[in-house]
């Protein structure tokens, strides 16, 4: 077979390329939270962090999605968790991203809530961004009671508690 060279085809020569066309694509979805997430979101509206425990391995998941991701069985027991946790890893964000409403720089982090075995994604505020570190102890800052919804946005951000940093062994493998 001879090689195909599009540049040698006369009909295609000297064509001004169309570099982009706009074809708007809009699809709307209505998600089903599912049984476990519904329980979780209902609790969040009451300013409670309610995880679920796997009956097989004992791990506590926050937020729960209905199944233990390690054992593939339903999480059956509900566990009420405190509003404090540890920063397991973090990132200082210096550029604005689409749809973002935050002032730059800000810190996003994985926060391992005390008693949970899966970190939550959240923002760290009320401290200089460059002071955020792994092991930092933080607590949730909630929206005002009259603004609470069935959403994790109820936690506005996490702020330092002032406690000494957590020992790395307490969050090893939870990054």
């Amino acid at each position: 077979m001879s090689p195909i060279d599009l540049e040698q085809i006369p009909a295609l020569a000297d064509v001004e390329p169309v570099k982009s066309t706009k074809t708007p694509l809009r699809l709307d979805y209505e998600y089903t939270a599912g049984a476990a997430s519904s329980r979780f979101l209902r609790a969040v509206k009451e300013k409670k962090l309610r995880g679920q425990r796997c009956p097989k391995c004992g791990k506590v998941y926050l937020p729960p999605r209905g199944a233990c991701p390690t054992d593939g069985v339903p999480t059956t027991d509900e566990v009420e968790l405190p509003h404090t946790g540890t920063v397991t890893t973090f990132c200082v964000v210096n550029v604005p991203f689409h749809g973002q409403q935050m002032e730059i720089p800000y810190v996003s982090a994985n926060v391992l809530v005390d008693g949970a075995d899966l970190p939550l994604f959240g923002l760290i505020q009320e401290m200089p961004a460059h002071d955020v570190r792994m092991g930092l102890r933080v607590e949730a800052v909630w929206k005002d009671d009259d603004e609470l919804e069935t959403s994790l946005e109820n936690i506005k951000w996490w702020r330092p508690t002032g406690e000494p940093d957590a020992d790395p062994s307490t969050y090893e493998g939870q990054m």
Binding site: Y31, A35, G66, G72, P74
Partner: peptide
């Protein structure tokens, strides 16, 4: 329409 369960809960 399976309203009570998400995909994980439907599959498991």
């Amino acid at each position: 329409r399976i309203e009570g369960y998400n995909e994980i809960e439907m599959m498991m």
